[in-house]
Simulated assay, not measured.
Amino acid sequence: MNGITQAALVIDWTQMPTYNTIMSVAAGAGLLSVVWLGRGLQRGAPVRLEGYAVSFLVLGTILTITGAHMTLTWPLAKYFPFDNIIFGEPSLGFGVLLLGSAILLWRRKDLPETEDRGAEIASVVRPLGIIIVGFGLALGAIAFAGLIFQLFAAPPEEPISGAFAQWPWVEATFMSGMFGVAGIGAVLFPLALRGFSTGSQRTTWQWIVGICIGLPGLGFFLFGALNFFTHIGLIINTMG
């Protein structure tokens, strides 16, 4: 099947570059950082905006470069061209958002803590709500595609994840769930900005969005780190 044999799985890795290891770690770290920044601003905790600006710059650079290459090189992975859409395009979009956020935070790094920094940053971010909702809908579409077409299943040759190869719905449900929940958080993100200010009580929408962004963020972060082992093992087991 396009260079992959079923008897003894052999993959031509020169035709299948992929970055969803570092992409996943960076995306997870980015989602978690957004939650921590929002939590710190709302609680009125001492938040060093320049630190978050540098963090977003680093993560945004990783996601923009890898996402752009994966998106514009079609198909980057010869055997699984849908990976360009599933991993490349969301990474590119999120990466550019993080880079824009880095500029925003750096320009406001000297904003006095006596001012309502939470409300100020929320007001500047609000126009991005349209594209964030669009990305959220896209993540929802990816989640449905993963479930309907049973994507994300690892072959038996992949360590750990391959143990579930005979049950493709397991990894499909897990990965689609992370995309779907993150999508819900993105769609509801504009609602979380309403009434957001330093010292304010969290609204129901803010709680929901925080959970919907934070949980997938932790999932992508840990799963991406695990993939540095499982993908290396898959390459070793299928080099032929």
Rank of each mutant, 00 (worst) to 15 (best):
N2F: 10
N2G: 02
G3V: 07
I4D: 12
T5F: 13
A7N: 13
A7P: 13
A8N: 14
D12P: 15
D12T: 13
D12F: 11
D12I: 15
W13G: 15
W13N: 13
T14E: 15
T14C: 13
T14K: 15
Q15G: 11
Q15I: 08
P17W: 11
T18H: 04
Y19R: 03
Y19S: 09
N20A: 06
N20Y: 15
N20R: 03
T21C: 03
T21A: 07
I22G: 00
I22R: 04
M23N: 09
M23C: 07
M23R: 02
S24E: 07
S24Q: 13
V25P: 10
V25W: 10
V25A: 02
A26E: 05
A26L: 09
A26D: 01
A27V: 10
A27S: 10
G28Q: 04
A29D: 05
A29P: 05
L31S: 04
L31R: 00
L31W: 04
L32W: 06
L32H: 01
V34C: 05
W36L: 13
G38Q: 00
G38C: 00
R39G: 06
R39Q: 03
R39V: 01
G40D: 01
G40M: 07
L41Q: 04
L41T: 04
L41N: 12
Q42I: 07
Q42E: 11
R43H: 12
R43G: 14
G44P: 12
A45W: 11
V47N: 09
V47Y: 06
R48T: 14
R48W: 12
L49K: 02
L49P: 05
A53L: 06
A53W: 04
A53M: 05
V54Y: 14
V54W: 15
F56L: 06
F56Q: 03
F56H: 00
F56S: 11
L57P: 07
L57E: 08
L57C: 05
L57Y: 05
V58D: 01
V58I: 15
L59A: 08
G60L: 04
I62E: 03
L63M: 08
T64G: 06
T64Q: 00
I65N: 01
T66W: 01
G67K: 03
G67D: 01
A68T: 09
H69E: 09
H69A: 02
M70V: 03
T71G: 02
T73W: 15
T73D: 11
T73R: 06
T73Q: 12
T73K: 09
W74G: 10
W74E: 05
W74V: 13
P75F: 09
P75E: 01
L76P: 02
L76T: 14
L76F: 13
A77K: 10
K78M: 11
K78W: 15
K78G: 07
K78I: 08
F80P: 08
P81Q: 03
P81R: 01
